[in-house]
């Protein structure tokens, strides 16, 4: 991929970053394993079923959830559908252009989706309304508003925060075929809070949560998504470059530690005890 002028970094800056890293210091004075300050604000868009604005340093992502009732995929007739889409808005960086999502945006969406899906963060079986016919379709759209490095982590954080914020109406199924949408809103069945941690390799040094300058000179990128139990539920190596086994193990260690810290910024899991998403009613036949 051709790099635009904003992404080209002078060899002086590159040398400076590398010489700092050798001493264990980063350009913005962070420790090598330190994540930038995080703020998570939920409920920022009232017309969405759930939303969140996440700031990871100066990287800003906004995620919104919209829900609708539709048909399930034929291979999963008894499950709701979750669709994650990501776009880099042209207002987010001088190097972004309008147009359909490019391979980078598609990669972000698919890595975010993988973490949510693998950890079964949203229990899709609770979102079947009439098995095989009608299910909840949950769309998460993530938009990067300002790109200052590590859009994957900012976007995955915004996504899970927006899902945690989401409320959908309870649905009544009459005689197994008619649907009535009730005016009682229940939380989405979110049962885990996977957190992605992106690690950059610059000249054999591993750093957590790369900023834009670091991203522009990194040799390799590894994203690990960690669930509440500390298990890894998604991996994605990105850009060129390569890693040794040792480096992967070290990255897992870094990710486990950072994930705990990052998760503190998220809202708690909803209380799903006694929550019903679908109620069924059989009406007696009238003459």
């Amino acid at each position: 991929m051709a790099r635009s002028s904003e992404e080209i970094i002078s060899s002086l800056d590159k040398a400076k970053i590398i010489s700092l890293l050798k001493r264990g210091v980063r350009l913005d004075e962070r420790r090598l394993d330190e994540v930038r300050p995080i703020t998570v604000e939920t409920g920022v868009v009232q017309k969405a079923e759930g939303s969140a604005l996440v700031k990871l340093g100066n990287t800003i992502s906004i995620a919104g959830v919209k829900a609708e009732i539709g048909t399930p995929f034929s291979d999963t007739p008894n499950e709701g559908v979750l669709i994650v889409n990501a776009e880099f808005l042209p207002l987010a960086s001088p190097s972004f252009e309008p147009g359909p999502p490019d391979e980078n945006a598609i990669e972000v969406a698919r890595v975010v989706d993988r973490g949510i899906r693998s950890s079964r963060a949203v229990s899709l079986e609770d979102l079947a309304i009439i098995p095989g016919k009608k299910v909840w379709i949950i769309y998460v759209d993530v938009y990067v508003l300002n790109h200052d490095g590590n859009m994957i982590d900012a976007s995955s954080l915004a996504t899970i925060a927006a899902l945690l914020d989401t409320k959908i109406p309870k649905v009544k199924v009459i005689d197994g075929e008619n649907i009535e949408i009730l005016d009682e809103w229940v939380p989405l069945p979110v049962r885990d809070r996977p957190v992605s941690v992106t690690i950059a390799k610059i000249n054999d040094t591993l750093i957590v949560d790369p900023g834009l300058e670091e991203e522009n000179i990194m040799d390799c990128r590894l994203t690990l998504t960690v669930n509440e139990k500390g298990e890894i539920c998604a991996i994605q190596k990105g850009i060129g470059g390569s890693l040794t086994l040792e480096e992967v193990y070290r990255a897992i260690d870094l990710a486990e530690k950072a994930a705990k810290k990052i998760r503190e910024a998220l809202p708690p899991l909803p209380n799903l005890e006694n929550v019903e998403w679908v109620v069924r009613e059989e009406k007696e036949e009238k003459e």
Binding site: S118, S119, L222, C233, A234, K237, S242, L243, T244
Partner: peptide
């Protein structure tokens, strides 16, 4: 050197 690493599942 590892040049591709992806995973889904836990």
């Amino acid at each position: 050197q590892i040049t591709l690493l992806q995973a889904d599942g836990v």
